[in-house]
Simulated scan of single mutants.
Amino acid sequence: MGTILLSHSVSANDLTVGFSQIGSESGWRAAETSVAKSEAEKRGITLKIADAQQKQENQIKAIRSFIAQGVDAIFLAPVVQTGWEPVLQEAKEAEIPVFLLDRNITVKDDSLFMTGVAADSVHEGAVAADWLIKTQAGQPCNVVELQGTVGASVALERKQGFLDTVATVPTIKIIRTQSGDFTRSKGKEVMESFIKAENNGKNICAVYAHNDDMAIGAIQAIKEAGLKPGKDIKIISIDGVPDIFKAMIAGEANASVELTPNMAGPALDALLAFKKDGTLPPKHIKTESVLFEPATAQAQLDLKKDMGY
């Protein structure tokens, strides 16, 4: 008991996957769901999606429901890093492999999941910091940071990567940091408080947002304060969603580190290989992170439209 056994060889058409999705709190998250549906459809796999509305208890309920339904695999985009052992143990005992998408978890027994498909979030933060360091070219810069959801692995890692990198440059300082919960509305609200606290924004050189949606919220707050985002205050964020490219074209954002929304594709391929002949995937499947600036914003926007973003 507790070991995932290899079932008989099945075709993709026989497979059903349950996907516990965090929610639709951002443009990127909605795109991940949309791409997951199309990737499953391409492979003839039935995908059942449960929207957790950013609550771990809803994800745990969804996983238990998927176990009861006897799905062939469970995809989990975990809202937070901890607290998954009991329900994942239940999946393991039911011999249902679990695949993590775009975020990591902390468990003592890593056999509770088969693989995790994710970007290197520490690297993403470092790429954002490198861009700011190069842009400032030795000039001083006070940065305010809009963090993602408290306790989410991606927020902790994007913070770490940025902090560790700017720590090597004494002219760049993070003067304020607070969670904007990965949402546009909270990003705007937090940025408003930063602006008020920092001489109507005049002490702020740049915003580092853990995702584009919070950056868009910050842009709105900056404009309402009578300042020019992208000029008076630089905007660097992560995700590469269409709206941030629109902001770049408008001159209101400076750079974004792309996070591909196609996390399900590699996970589905790993599942098919496992079901076919027992091939075990690597424990972590890493996706690429690329920095984009205004010069290529229109091309990226066109590409996103082609992807159905």
Rank of each mutant, 00 (worst) to 15 (best):
A253E: 02
S20Q: 03
A155V: 04
A128G: 15
Q53K: 14
A152S: 15
N203L: 10
K202W: 08
G201H: 05
N142R: 11
A209Y: 01
W28H: 06
A218L: 05
Q54F: 08
Q178A: 13
S34M: 09
T260Y: 06
P140E: 04
K61A: 15
Q59P: 05
I219N: 03
E145W: 08
V241F: 05
A270F: 00
I45P: 02
S289L: 14
D212G: 03
E288F: 06
K108W: 03
W131L: 11
A247E: 07
H284T: 09
E93K: 05
I195M: 05
A255Q: 09
M1R: 14
N203G: 08
D269L: 11
L76W: 04
I105S: 01
T183C: 04
E288R: 09
Q89D: 07
I216M: 12
G151L: 06
P170A: 11
I172T: 00
Q147W: 14
A253T: 04
T82V: 11
A68Q: 13
Q147E: 13
T33F: 05
I204L: 08
Q300R: 11
F274G: 01
F75P: 07
D14T: 11
L163V: 13
R176N: 14
C141E: 01
A264D: 04
F274L: 08
V79A: 01
G125N: 03
L280D: 10
L112V: 00
F19C: 07
A197C: 05
D302P: 14
A40G: 06
